[in-house]
Design a protein around this nucleic acid. Structure first.
Lengths: 209, 209
DNA sequence: AATATATCACCCATTTAGGGGGAGGTTATA
DNA sequence: TATAACCTCCCCCTAAATGGGTGATATATT
């Protein structure tokens, strides 16, 4: 056994898929499958024994789901890199997985080569993603072009979100506190909220700022 | 001229690099370089004439910089896809570029093949990124594991960030308003802030929530 | 010329949040 | 067994934010 071969664990409930992955991965000399599970609980139980560097994780699983599993594994063992492999391209799932600690997210239509490339990329400190996933992720940085707020209101809201008070905003924008207040009232009315933090929460969620 | 070949514009101040890119891109029949500029102003001036589908954009430029140029171009012409090509792997620049509207971010050590792959990926609706950039982006979703806040405090702060008032937080956590207040006071002291929105701003910035 | 929108400004009243302090109980850990 | 976090609750007081109005000015747009 070669100590430098990366240890990989597979979690995937479909037997055929799981065995297929194992075959593909074991066909390459750089890494090998130490164990393959059909549920996350068993994987977590055996982490200390398996000592994987990388886990290839499905999301739709019997018992605890992949997202929770990722969070648990990352908490207990931050060094392990997790690559999500699933059929879902739903944006919420993607962000949940990444927030939970996944290092990569590939969808199941990827070829054998792409699967192996993803593993290589993770080993080299990268974050492999399928094309559509990468686009979702990148889009999440971009503002909503259909903001109901005027540019001045957006400006005020951005300062609010930075933690500034009414008077600080007034100072920075060279207006009176009452004017700032007036803008904020209009913002509240447009966003249908009635407090600073609600406004910030809604604006952040809808990417108005 | 083939109407189905994608129109590409290059903005790159280094003459050799710019001409090199043009040669590489023109060597492929799927797309061609309609124009190549050594500054962003000229590119913007000629957008209507050039009608590019894709712009390959450097960030360090004479005159207006690449980030501003991306924002301007995207505002005037949201359909254009911008790929950043730069030597900088600085995380602030990456996020600024993506927020401004870049669809991809590749660094200058990429091979000719990778450059062409990036263009293909953008045409197919993807978001090409160099390995290190993708990692930066993915990491930006993950929480700071060294939070100074207790789990209860984090819970309270998350509710604050959702726009809840003291009394709503108290209700949701089955504690009194005074207890919620007490937690919030501790949060403020730990984060060295003194208002809700400052706390949210700081916590968001440092990924405590 | 009329309408709408954004921007700016002020008043009053009430509610909420913030700063100061104290205090009892649990839990973990040294 | 200290002792240090953490979680819970309470008091008082001040400052800040919010909600309800009103109204002027400028700038597009129709």
């Amino acid at each position: 056994m070669n100590y430098f071969r990366s240890r990989i664990v597979i979690v995937e409930d479909n037997d055929a898929v799981r065995e297929g992955f194992a075959l593909i991965i074991n066909s390459v000399s750089d890494y090998y499958v130490v164990n393959a599970y059909d549920n996350a609980e068993d994987c977590i139980k055996n982490l200390k024994k398996d000592k994987p560097e990388i886990i290839l994780m499905d999301l739709e699983l019997p018992g605890i789901n992949g997202i929770e599993a990722i969070a648990l594994i990352k908490k207990q063992n931050p060094g392990i890199e997790l690559i999500v492999n699933t059929i879902y391209e739903n944006s919420d799932l993607v962000f949940q997985a990444l927030c939970a600690g996944a290092s990569g997210y590939i969808t199941k239509n990827t070829s054998h080569t792409e699967l192996l490339d993803a593993i290589d990329e993770v080993i080299q400190g990268g974050a492999p993603m399928s094309s559509k996933i990468a686009k979702l992720v990148v889009n999440s940085f971009q503002k909503n072009p259909n903001s109901p707020l005027s540019s001045r209101e957006t400006e005020v809201l951005e300062l609010l979100a930075k933690g500034k008070s009414y008077s600080m905003i007034a100072q920075e924008l060279f207006i009176t506190k009452e004017t700032a207040k007036s803008h904020i009232k209009n913002i509240y009315s447009k966003l249908q909220v009635n407090s600073k933090s609600e406004a910030i929460a809604k604006a952040t969620k809808e990417k108005l700022i």
